[in-house]
Simulated scan of single mutants.
Amino acid sequence: MNFEDLFEVTGSEVECEEAPFVAERSVQAVQRRRFSFDCVPYSQEPAIQNVSEAEVLKRLDVLQGLQKDYINRLAIIETALKENVPDKSEVQAQSKLLRECRVIGARTHQAISRITGDMEDEEYLDLASKLPMSSIEHLATVEEKLKNRASADVMMRLLVKARGVKGTVDGVLRTLLHDDLARDYDLEGRKGKKSLISLKCVDIVFDVFAEKPKQSVLDYIRRYVALSHNRHKQKLCKLKKKVVLSVNN
């Protein structure tokens, strides 16, 4: 079939032939249908507004002025931060000095008490009676007391005294915590254990050994935890042996 037989252009109308669907083995009739098209003129883009070179330069000058202003403000903020924020090494040195002063103060108080024969105050006797702590209840009571600075100073005096007798981190911690309580704790609180270094009473141990590097004290505490768990296991084994012997007898 020729393409011209299907389409005819007449004015603004286009004629085409359509073959509608008919039943099987029937003759397909060709019908003509007219379609109307409205021609819309092509819309041109709006003309770009002409800006003079002087206006462009003026706007650039404004932007450069704002940029310089922002740079000056950032420089002022940066200078203020450098002046107000101390160096990390300086903060660590000041913290170490503060801890050493607290230890010296506790030792001085202890020496004066021995010389004058003054009796310890009620707070001192109350905290001393709870050491070594063997239950969660005692530990919770002491931790609540240590929120008070006066009680924290009393605990410092107790642990400084313990260091004078025991001499080691392990000895001070054994004065502070019983193995029955320490079994539930780990250094960082792993494997279902509670964190030991999160306790306020253990934080005072760092102050007692302020002259030692913090990492060194952490290593001693980690060693104490391992030895404490081992001592508790040995205690349970001995207890089981006693029970078995008593049953057999």
Rank of each mutant, 00 (worst) to 15 (best):
E4K: 09
E17P: 00
P20Q: 13
P41V: 13
A47V: 14
E53M: 14
E53A: 15
Q67I: 14
R73G: 05
A75K: 15
T79K: 15
D87M: 08
Q94G: 11
L97Q: 15
L98G: 11
E100I: 04
Q110V: 06
A111Q: 13
I112M: 14
I112P: 02
R114V: 14
T116K: 10
D118H: 13
D118W: 10
M119Q: 15
D121S: 10
E123D: 09
E123C: 03
E123V: 07
D126H: 08
S129Y: 06
S129N: 09
K130G: 01
S135K: 12
S135T: 15
I136G: 07
K145R: 14
K147P: 01
R149Q: 07
A150K: 06
A150I: 03
V154H: 00
M155S: 00
G164V: 05
V165T: 12
V165Y: 04
K166L: 03
G167E: 03
T168L: 02
V169W: 00
D179Y: 08
D186L: 01
E188R: 10
R190N: 08
G192N: 04
S195F: 03
L199Q: 06
L199I: 09
I204C: 02
I204Q: 01
V205P: 00
V208H: 05
V208K: 04
E211A: 08
K212I: 03
K214N: 08
V217C: 06
R222K: 12
V225A: 05
S228L: 07
L236P: 00
K242Q: 08
S246D: 11
N249L: 10
